[in-house]
Simulated assay, not measured.
Amino acid sequence: MDMDEWWGLVDTARTAVGDRADDRELPDDPLPEALVGVLAALEPAGIIDFYVKYVEAQDSAYRYSLYMAAYLIEGSCTDDGFMDFRGGLILLGQDTFSRAVAHPDSLAELPTVTRMSREEGGWIGYESVSCLIADAYRRVQGETDSLDTAVEAALSGMARPEQLLGEEWNRDPEDEEQMRRRLPRLAALFLN
């Protein structure tokens, strides 16, 4: 499976839920179950490959600038919170994800982010994309031990970032001047 096919699976799930695909705060968020359904239609090897590509996508977004954007949008950002944020970005689809990785300030264009800035609800992050993949695998195989073993073996051969990528920032999220200079549109939304 190449990355275009991988993103195509994400887009298939997004298309299935229509205009409800961009907000993870909905009480009956339909996207997670739609993605499980799309993945459960694959062979077990395809689900394993999807999981490995998911990790690759997550790793590609492990960047200083995106971390700081997540901090502004969410009001704080732990390591786990940043993982969830990147998972949620993936669920927003390839175009939004790619723009955000290249230019995190582009997230200011998202209606969900605008609502969040006005404290009108909405959420980007999603905690359990890996659990969705495991749920799909369990539907197909009846277990997840073989998924865990296969993914662990695949990841053991990959070079994965140990530190945030890209230009190193002063990682002080309270440095408003830095935020305004580097993420001007997001700063305009979230900093008073």
Rank of each mutant, 00 (worst) to 15 (best):
D2V: 01
E5D: 03
V10Q: 04
T12H: 08
T15I: 14
T15G: 02
A16K: 05
A21L: 11
D22E: 07
D22I: 07
P27M: 15
D29A: 11
P32Q: 00
E33H: 12
V36Y: 09
V38G: 05
A40F: 11
A41W: 06
A41G: 03
P44N: 06
A45S: 14
G46A: 00
G46P: 15
I47S: 00
Y51R: 14
K53R: 15
Q58I: 15
D59T: 14
D59L: 11
S60W: 10
S65N: 10
L66G: 13
L66V: 09
L72M: 13
E74M: 14
G75T: 11
C77W: 03
T78V: 10
D79F: 14
D79Q: 15
G81S: 09
F82I: 13
F82N: 09
F85E: 11
G87S: 14
L91V: 14
L91Q: 08
G93I: 06
G93T: 00
G93E: 02
Q94D: 01
S98W: 04
V101C: 01
P104D: 08
D105E: 00
A108H: 01
A108W: 04
E109Y: 05
L110P: 08
P111S: 08
T114R: 15
S117A: 00
E119F: 14
E120T: 02
W123Y: 14
W123S: 10
W123T: 02
E127C: 09
E127Q: 12
S128D: 12
S128H: 12
V129M: 07
C131P: 00
C131R: 10
C131N: 11
R138A: 01
V140S: 08
Q141R: 12
G142K: 02
G142A: 03
T144K: 10
T144Y: 07
D145V: 00
S146Y: 02
S146N: 01
S146L: 08
A150S: 01
A150I: 00
V151N: 02
E152M: 06
A153F: 10
L155H: 01
G157N: 03
M158S: 01
M158D: 06
A159H: 09
P161T: 15
P161M: 12
E162W: 09
E162S: 13
E167M: 10
E168S: 14
N170V: 15
R171F: 13
R180Q: 08
R182V: 00
R182W: 05
L183A: 09
L186A: 06
A187T: 02
L191D: 09
N192F: 12
